[in-house]
Design a protein around this nucleic acid. Sequence first.
DNA 1: CTGCAGGGGTAAA
DNA 2: TTTACCCCTGCA
Length: 288
Amino acid sequence: MQEQEYQIENQESFELKHIFDCGQCFRWNEEDDKSYTGVFKGNVLNVKKDNNTIYFKGIVNGNIKDIVEDYFDLNRDYTKIKKTLSKVDNNIKKGIEYGEGIRILNQDLVETILSFIISANNNIPRIKKIIERLSESYGTKIVWNKKNYYAFPSLKQLENVSVEEYRNLGLGFRDKRIYDTVHMLLNNQVDYKKWYDENNTLKVREELLSLAGVGPKVADCILLFSDLKRFDVFPIDVWVRRVMNELYIKNPDETKVNKKDIERIAYQKFGNLEGIAQQYLFYWKREA
DNA sequence: CTGCAGGGGTAAA
DNA sequence: TTTACCCCTGCA
């Protein structure tokens, strides 16, 4: 592996902050020069945007152009998606204006599953630290510019890790969930390679829910943020509940808002684009 | 300094 | 439907 570079001009819908801060990923960090460096699928990549040019460079396995196009979902027409969603109502229109540069990344499925199990009842800084320690401890080291980076560990690399070792990394009560799910995946208790060919998102969701530590919210995040790329899901966490209540349901007692109502309204309004609509609403209300 | 609530949920009661 | 859960942070 050696360093490669790539650049693109005038890419629509591509803002680093929007992409990396909208809650979909945990391994991208901002550098002093406002660029971002991240580790994904065994690659280390730095991304910088200047005016209308985006510069990519890093240590990647394969052709950097292919890797960037795939990971950043560059072949999808976000302009068209935004146009369609903007017509729904003024709320989503404002959300889109706020987060117009969001793209949903094609992240590794296993990494996304384990990362979102760790995200349960947890906050982002702590999630990031845990994932970093997990990668440092068991992932493959990649050296770039005299700095050490660590790929997210493969299932094989996690095969012999004990519950206690996870506990020592600070996973807390999530230790057993990670252990169990790693072994459920290793033992092919769910046939996750088939999920890519399954058109029925609900069927895949059903199987995801059988994994330890995967409930409705985590399952929807995996479907939306991994390279399974399903936009017909609507992950509901406290923020989304807050936004949806504020904009559409208007229940004075937010804790009384029914998940089923949120799901119904989301599908009614945004249809099969509800997943990406969720991201615009979430990012808008959480940052603002 | 100590105490405590709460955090981008899940699983068990 | 309600509650415990492991750890860290912010704040009284």
